[in-house]
Amino acid sequence: MRLEQLQAFLAVAETGNFQQAAQKCGVSQSTISRQVQSLEATVGITLFHRQGNAKLTVGGDRLLIHAKKICQIWTTAEQELNDLRAGKQTELCVAGIPSACAYQLPPILQTFAKTYPNVQLRVTTLGSDRALKVLKDGLIDIAIVMNNPFLTASSEMVVEHLYDEKIQLLLPAKHPLSRKETLSWRDLHNCPQAVFKDGYGLQRLVQDQFNRQGISLNAALELNSLEAFRGVVKQGSLVALLPETFVVELIGEPDLVVRSLNEPNLTREIVLVTTSDRIQIPPIQYFCKLASQMIGQSRPTILKSAF
């Protein structure tokens, strides 16, 4: 049973005439007759009395209500797909790491909203691994995360590099290490730290670096908020390795000190990830272009003299 067969059946049922049904559908009468005959062969029952006007048989009358529902469902689905292709989606869901949501996304969201005022934006702060999982599950449209090739290697994933970002050390001003202008990774051996929770790419990056250096990471506290890191480090004896985008705003605070670590420099790659099917949808495509253009322009730079 094909859609065009049901459409031909409905046209004949509504007009009561094969010729008028053909005119309504914009095809020849022979095409309408062939579609109806094929439908009758499929269902195994005659659908019309053909003496004079085409009148529904008992079987045709039973099929009529179902055929209307099927064609209406298809019409609705077709309209929704056309709207999607034309960029008339109702919402766009973005997940991003904390620094992206706090610093990079606000101007992008504002610009996007001016171009697509009828698209509701939904933004969620998530760790990189979690954001990529919900993207794969179809719960969001775009993820701005720390790159994880193990999770983005699928052919369905579209990955665009945005920027590379240094990881800096945030310390309390009274911490013994704050008196040193130059710090090495060895200085952090067993030093109590506040770290991101599991599922955040930065936690994995830091742990891998400690492993490569052959030193122990003393993760005394797990957090998932940049402002929480600020408060914890400011009030206590913990240190934290945090993204440059965040710590640049803390330089000059009397209770905090920002330091770089000697070679090797620790950096992370920030990428935008969506899927090959979503990138074809105009609002999503536009958002991705905006992010690529605007994020590089909005990133702060830490001057070496600040240390």
Rank of each mutant, 00 (worst) to 15 (best):
T46N: 15
T46Y: 15
L47R: 10
R50D: 04
G52P: 04
G52E: 02
N53F: 13
N53D: 14
N53L: 11
K55S: 13
K55Y: 08
L56C: 09
L56R: 09
T57I: 06
G59A: 15
G60R: 04
G60W: 04
G60D: 07
D61R: 14
R62W: 12
R62E: 15
R62Q: 15
R62A: 15
L64W: 13
I65T: 15
I65Y: 10
H66L: 13
A67W: 08
A67L: 10
A67N: 07
K68F: 06
K68T: 08
I70P: 06
I70R: 14
I70E: 15
Q72L: 11
T75V: 05
T75K: 12
T75M: 08
T76I: 13
A77V: 02
Q79P: 00
L81W: 06
L81N: 06
N82A: 14
N82E: 12
L84F: 03
L84V: 07
R85T: 03
A86G: 02
G87H: 01
G87R: 00
K88F: 04
K88N: 11
T90N: 10
E91N: 12
L92Y: 04
L92C: 04
L92M: 08
C93T: 14
C93K: 14
V94T: 02
V94E: 01
V94C: 01
A95E: 00
I97P: 00
I97D: 13
I97H: 05
P98F: 05
A100W: 07
A100N: 06
A102E: 13
A102H: 09
Y103P: 03
Q104W: 09
L105Y: 10
P106M: 06
I108E: 04
L109E: 12
L109Y: 07
L109D: 12
Q110C: 10
Q110E: 15
Q110M: 10
T111F: 07
K114V: 12
K114Y: 09
T115M: 08
T115A: 11
Y116T: 08
Y116M: 07
P117V: 06
V119T: 13
V119K: 06
V123Q: 05
V123H: 08
V123M: 08
L126H: 07
G127W: 03
G127P: 03
S128Y: 06
S128R: 06
D129P: 00
R130Y: 11
A131K: 09
L132H: 02
L132Y: 03
L132R: 02
K133W: 10
V134T: 09
V134W: 00
L135Q: 00
K136P: 00
D137Q: 11
L139N: 09
L139Y: 10
I140P: 01
D141S: 05
D141N: 12
I142T: 05
A143I: 04
A143S: 09
I144V: 13
M146P: 00
M146E: 13
N147A: 08
N147R: 08
N148T: 10
P149I: 04
P149R: 05
F150T: 14
L151D: 05
T152N: 03
T152L: 07
A153P: 02
A153I: 11
A153V: 12
E156H: 13
E156I: 12
V159E: 04
E160R: 13
H161L: 10
